[in-house]
């Protein structure tokens, strides 16, 4: 099954509208899941379940949203900042996420801004194409 980014976006958008109770025009490629769309921890599981069904793929949770598991590791996070080693690991485990802005100020509180709708679209594209 091969799909264009636009086709994937449309389906992701539909599922986020249902999972988060937002309007479809609120879901743009740039929207952040937590900041803009108000997703909470349980919503991430809901989103994973929906995307698995929609695209008929398996999504290990730590693959799409791996940052949570790394938060408690002191080699990767120190004094509220993600270390160089942490960023290197993030990049390796999350090739679907754009880290360019985050690298300039790797504040741990900004980590949630990395999870945009676009990062999901890229992740799905990597899985199915």
């Amino acid at each position: 099954m091969s799909m264009t980014s636009e086709e994937i976006f449309e389906k992701v958008q539909e599922n986020l509208v249902d999972a988060l109770g937002v309007d479809d025009d609120e879901v743009t490629l740039q929207s952040t899941l937590m900041g803009d769309l108000g997703a909470e921890s349980i919503d991430f599981l809901d989103i994973v379940f929906r995307l698995e069904k929609e695209f008929d793929i398996q999504i290990p949770r730590e693959e799409l949203f791996p940052a949570e598991a790394m938060m408690g590791n002191s080699e990767l996070v120190q004094d509220g900042k993600v270390t160089a080693a942490g960023i290197a690991q993030f990049k390796e485990t999350m090739p679907h996420v754009d880290f360019s802005e985050f690298e300039a100020d790797p504040d741990i509180n900004k980590i949630t801004d990395l999870f945009t709708v676009e990062s999901i679209v890229k992740f799905i594209a990597g899985k199915i194409n």
Partner: peptide, 10 residues
């Protein structure tokens, strides 16, 4: 039954 993972089920 809809779906199950280690952390949740639907």
């Amino acid at each position: 039954f809809d779906n199950i993972a280690d952390e949740a089920a639907s």
